[in-house]
Amino acid sequence: ILDGIGETDMVARYVLNGDVKDWSRNNLHGKLNGDGRFVDDKQFGKVLSLTGNNTFVTLPGEVLTGLESISVAGWIYLHSTQSGQRFFDFGKNEKSHFSASPAGSTQRPGYQAILTINGNNLPAIAPSVEPNKWVHLAVVIDISSRTTFIYLNGKQAGQATGIPNELTQLFGNKNAKSTLYIGRSLAAADPCLNALLHDLRIYRVPLSEKQVANIYNNALHNNTSVSVNTTAKTEDDLQQFATTEPQLYNAYLVSVANTAVSTEVGTLPRLPEYVNGVYKNAINGPKVRVLWPNPNNNNEVLKPGQYKITGRVPGTALQPQVTVTVNEVAKAIAPKQTLQA
């Protein structure tokens, strides 16, 4: 558990203190582009410096796999108030994406998070971020309430309602190719980010205001809480990691269980995102994220039978399998009408 938030709720964490590796167990490492570099900072030690001169970070599209909601949080030290800079920009293209602009967009001023769907913008707006000081930003898309929340230094600063009821409307389905930028816009004409960055996190759940405040306050007081389980239920034997070490639990992973699912003729199966893992020393560890290949067609489900799909666990050589059973479509039974005397 990190800052009171369960490990399986975290998709990726980029501390940015010397590299762009993912410190979560999912190993979704980023790539630094351009002349970005890591510099010393009085508050956070070593941080990432983006110069605004075509420097940015690219994240793998797998970050968005299987998300029902999403929260993005991180620290930023703006060097420029130029509008159009992006803290992050995730999506399919300029007409369908999710972005955050700390210094405003070309259309309107203010710190804002914008969902753009088929070219239509749904902005959540707050006052612009002050330059030349560290501030903590968080953007939460809560699908259950159909609301986007934006936070500034641990407090809610704005919101937008009436957002789509599924992220697939924004990012597409699993077969869709998404681009994920940190410090760059999907629109080539917009400026790149001129700022320092620290501890960028992406969650698969909508963080509450209390959780966002905990992240902010713990970082300020150098009190980042890192434990594997404080509830003493299922993960007590996993090693506790210091804040200076990546939480790479996959280093303890020995094997991953194969699994089975079923579907009906003509319907592609729903594959499990997490499966049980076997850890060293009989550790009772968390479930393991598995990435399955995207189907090229539906040939395997056109008739009853069985087939297997081989997946992979990021950061390991493990290749778990799922056995898919394709059943005949159940025939609907017409209701019988009974007349009462």
Score class of each variant (00 low, 15 high):
Gly6Leu: 07
Thr8Asn: 13
Ala12Arg: 06
Arg13Val: 08
Arg13Gly: 02
Tyr14Asp: 02
Val15Ala: 09
Gly18Phe: 06
Gly18Pro: 10
Asn26Thr: 11
Asn27Trp: 01
Gly34Ser: 04
Asp35Asn: 10
Gly36Lys: 01
Gln43Ala: 07
Gln43Asn: 12
Ser49Leu: 03
Gly52Ala: 04
Asn54Lys: 13
Thr58Gln: 08
Pro60Asp: 08
Ser80Gln: 02
Thr81Phe: 07
Thr81Met: 10
Ser83Asn: 11
Ser83Lys: 13
Gln85Cys: 02
Lys95Asn: 11
Ala103Met: 12
Thr106Trp: 12
Gly110Asp: 00
Tyr111Gly: 03
Asn118Arg: 04
Gly119Tyr: 09
Asn120Thr: 09
Asn121Lys: 13
Ile125Gly: 02
Pro131Trp: 00
Asn132Val: 07
Val135Gln: 15
Val140Gln: 05
Ser144Ala: 15
Thr147Val: 12
Gly154Ser: 07
Gly154Phe: 08
Ala160Lys: 15
Asn165Trp: 07
Leu167Gln: 00
Lys174Asp: 14
Lys177Gln: 15
Leu180Tyr: 00
Leu180Arg: 03
Ala187Gln: 10
Cys192Thr: 15
Ala195Arg: 00
His198Leu: 02
Gln211Asp: 12
Tyr216Cys: 10
Asn218Val: 00
Ala219Tyr: 08
Thr234Ser: 12
Gln240Asn: 15
Thr243Met: 09
Asn250Ile: 05
Asn250Phe: 07
Tyr252Arg: 12
Ala257Leu: 14
Gly266Asp: 07
Glu273Arg: 14
Asn276Phe: 10
Lys280Tyr: 10
Ile283Cys: 02
Ile283Tyr: 06
Gly285Gln: 03
Val288Leu: 07
Val290His: 08
Pro293Ala: 13
Asn296Pro: 00
Asn297Thr: 15
Asn299Thr: 12
Lys303His: 04
Lys303Ala: 13
Gly305Met: 07
Lys308Met: 08
Pro314Lys: 11
Gln321Leu: 00
Thr323Lys: 13
Val324His: 05
Asn327Phe: 10
Lys331Met: 09
Lys336His: 11
Ala341Tyr: 11
